[in-house]
Design a binder for these strands. Structure first.
Lengths: 250, 250
DNA sequence: CCTCGCTTTTTTGTATGACAATCTGCTAGG
DNA sequence: CCTAGCAGATTGTCATACAAAAAAGCGAGG
């Protein structure tokens, strides 16, 4: 039926250059979020942040009560979390917050490395200088947060760093998948930063990535990205090993 | 609560070697598929095969009628399809079967290349010889189907090829994501094989991959895999361009 | 003829209640 | 101590209801 026609005079396409600055200033149209979406966001955030522990059961009744929504919504939310592998559902037994095994964590980090390499490559090839400068500015903020040992702030800034990187790379598919992978290891990433010296080292690694991108040196940026993710992976795996050797009761 | 204890004597862990042959002979426990899962499978298959055209609306009532299930189920199914990006949902407007733009297709193929490289690398490093021999056997079948111009058979055999490859690579995360990407481009892959000579060339490319794996030459296998996927990508993009230049009514 | 704006119809979003199937934990009996 | 079986909790599925939003139809006026 209604195909996308070539921009009727009164309703310009969203990417029309004249209004780009305005669109950016106002931000996305703030879609009237559905109950379902809000509920999904809340549970997802709780899982990602670790407020709901891995392995914890999520019974429908409890979720209904906690969220103040109907089972209809809760069940749809669960399907979404299941698809993102944040919960694991067994038939007739309900969902549990997914646990991360060392093997899975390793696989996620390895794939994350390839994904980020891909994005960095695209960024070097395509991103405007403005995005690059934004990346450099964020690198400064990262350094400041790191010196202050402000892990929470660091996480927030890193999120903006990724947003900028993926915006410049302009690769929706890779961005999308990277985001779901990062969600799965989000607790682990915070844990890994607790390793003494890890924060300082990671700042150096990120600086190297930004510097390579600044030189538009794709090969160097690729190497630097791999080095960064692999270092993060190894730190994360060490933390998993520690956690495993010293269960809560030790 | 109930942690996974080290195999109570009467209920051995599924990977206990003694019964491996039996497990393989019987196959997976044929889980009592829920209505939800069956419905999901049906709609997914219909979309992947193209029986439901891209852009088509999927109204809840129609799905309920077609599947003989309640709205509860239909809505959960839709959430699943949405998460796999097989349908695109707009609030208050319902889901439509996702359309594939050239840009998205390109991104998917580029990522697919990295994913398959990763899997091939893992396969070379880890897979037992038995899996390798199975791959070689499948290569033979692929050649036969190709000479017979049997596209449908080819698709089926390629699916088994992937199953063997991913089983040997033993990387669940990468396998999982590769599968969702392949689902999204499944129609396109069939379309691309319609290009004259594409089938024959792809057989050669696959043969090269298998040969490199056989020599346990990871670097060569990686190159061969990239060559194969990129060739498939270019063929697919050409078909998209054709389709775009010649809309149904021409 | 086209278009603006109103009304009607369709469809989605959400909640509720119901009931069968299944799982889990507990208890009684061997 | 182990087992069988019962009772309670939980999931799986359905039917129904209604508000809100979107789409379709319609009629008056330019």
């Amino acid at each position: 039926m209604s195909e996308e026609r070539p921009a009727p005079s009164d309703h310009p396409a969203p990417e029309s250059p004249e209004a780009a600055w305005l669109a950016e200033a106002i931000g996305p149209p703030a879609a009237p979020r559905l109950v379902r979406e809000q509920a999904f966001g809340k549970v997802k955030a709780a899982i990602i942040s670790g407020r709901i522990a891995p392995g914890a059961r999520l019974t429908e009744r409890a979720l209904c009560a906690a969220l103040g929504v109907s089972r209809t919504i809760v069940r749809e939310v669960i399907r979404g979390l299941e698809a993102e592998r944040l919960v694991q559902v067994t038939a007739h037994r309900g969902p549990r917050v997914a646990r991360l095994t060392a093997k899975t964590a390793r696989e996620i980090y390895d794939l994350r490395a390839e994904l980020e390499v891909l994005l960095v490559r695209d960024f070097v090839a395509r991103a405007p200088d403005a995005d690059l400068r934004r990346l450099e500015a964020l690198l400064g903020e990262i350094g400041r947060a790191a010196r202050a040992e402000d892990v929470e702030g660091l996480v927030a800034i890193m999120a903006r760093f990724y947003t900028t990187l993926t915006a410049g790379a302009d690769n929706e598919v890779a961005t999308d998948i990277l985001e779901t992978l990062l969600a799965r290891i989000s607790r682990l990433r915070v844990l890994a930063m607790a390793e003494p010296g890890r924060i300082a080292r990671s700042v150096g690694e990120i600086a190297e990535i930004v510097a390579s991108i600044g030189r538009r040196d794709a090969a160097a940026a690729e190497d630097a990205t791999r080095a960064y993710v692999y270092a993060a992976r190894d730190a994360a795996l060490r933390q998993i090993a520690l956690e495993h050797d010293a269960p809560p009761g030790a």
